[in-house]
């Protein structure tokens, strides 16, 4: 009984079965479209997924930003300054999950952390986990796939961040940081965080929703559009032949295609969903998603201004290798989750 109740809540709140039914009703009875047919199904997928993602996005970013208002970068830096070694990498990866997912803030954070004397390895653990894993994307993953997959995604995302940061630290990559980074002042500036009232936090959360939605909506529309196309127009055989999990190159192909792309995790999820539904391996789809969100050409170009090539190459190489490894792992053990 309890299990049924939870299942019902999961279906209605997270998966929004009611919305799918409503859209079906509207298209079938309102417009006379056959929602089982190709065009009808594409339109159904598009409308349902767009509305669902925007609702979840709004609610989740609001909640997350409220939590985030307790962890401005200055405070994160102070917390991380008090630990060292592996625990510091783990803590950095965890703190990365409650901080902004916009890669545009990563450079000031990198400079701020490094100039305060945090080791490069720990800063990178934070920078890898920040766009890759956040609370909002976990709940979206649970909505589109399932809770076990969402939790597994968090765990492997954190593992990449911890291992990647540790390796970069061990390799003595500190010397490849541009020297101007160390010459910046460290300003404590703790007043701002203590001064926030509850009302200001709520307002901050509301502003974040407006800011993020206004920035990511094109990616969501494009992502859902591609998802709808994959769902109904690209032959299943083609996807299975290219990205099926029995194909050894599928993860490699998906990762290398995803690395240069810049998109938000919210835009990539519908694509991953459609790929999995049409015969791509779960690991292949997750690898694509991680590659798109963790690495992108624009963010690497920005990063190039603060670190030199060897560090940039090591960072890209380690993260790419980690994503490929995880893709194969999920393809091998994915049947446990589906």
């Amino acid at each position: 009984m309890i299990g049924d109740g939870f299942g019902w809540l999961n279906d209605q709140l997270l998966r929004m079965q009611w919305l799918a039914d409503l859209v079906t009703l509207l298209l079938r009875d309102g417009f006379g479209l056959d929602t089982a047919g190709r065009i009808g199904a594409s339109i159904h997928f598009f409308i349902y997924d767009v509305i669902k993602i925007f609702i979840l996005l709004g609610v989740l970013i609001f909640g997350m930003s409220y939590i985030q208002s307790y962890f401005p970068p200055e405070r994160t830096r102070r917390i991380l300054g008090g630990v060292s070694g592996l625990p510091a990498n783990i803590l950095a990866a965890l703190l990365g999950t409650v901080t902004p997912f916009c890669s545009c803030s990563s450079i000031p954070i990198f400079i701020g952390f490094t100039s305060a004397g945090l080791p490069v390895g720990i800063t990178f653990s934070f920078l890898i986990s920040s766009p890759l894993v956040d609370l909002a994307s976990v709940i979206l993953l649970a909505s589109i796939f399932s809770w076990p997959i969402a939790l597994a995604y968090v765990v492997v995302g954190l593992v990449i961040a911890v291992v990647g940061g540790t390796l970069l630290g061990r390799a003595g990559m500190d010397r490849y940081v541009e020297s101007f980074v160390f010459r910046n002042p460290v300003i404590a500036h703790d007043g701002a965080e203590a001064a926030l009232t509850r009302r200001e936090r709520l307002q901050f959360a509301r502003d974040q929703v407006a800011d993020i939605v206004s920035r990511v909506w094109p990616y969501i529309l494009i992502g859902v559009g591609i998802g709808a196309a994959i769902h109904n127009w690209i032959p299943q055989d083609l996807i299975a032949a290219l990205l099926g999990q029995d194909k050894w190159w599928s993860v490699l192909l998906a990762t290398l295609a995803g690395v240069p792309m810049y998109a938000d995790i919210f835009g990539t999820l519908p694509i991953a969903e459609a790929l999995v539904a049409h015969g791509a391996g779960l690991g292949t789809a997750l690898a694509f998603m991680m590659a798109v969100t963790a690495l992108s050409l624009p963010s690497l170009i920005l990063l190039k201004r603060v670190v030199r090539l060897p560090l940039l190459a090591a960072f890209t190489g380690i993260v790419t290798a980690g994503i490929i490894g995880i893709g194969y792992l999920f393809n091998a053990f994915g049947y446990l989750f589906l």
Binding site: P72, S105, G112, V181, N184, L302, R305, V306
Partner: peptide, 13 residues
Amino acid sequence: DFADIASYGVMST
């Protein structure tokens, strides 16, 4: 410019 912004010790804009 990021470098200029950081030169004031700012991490969040």
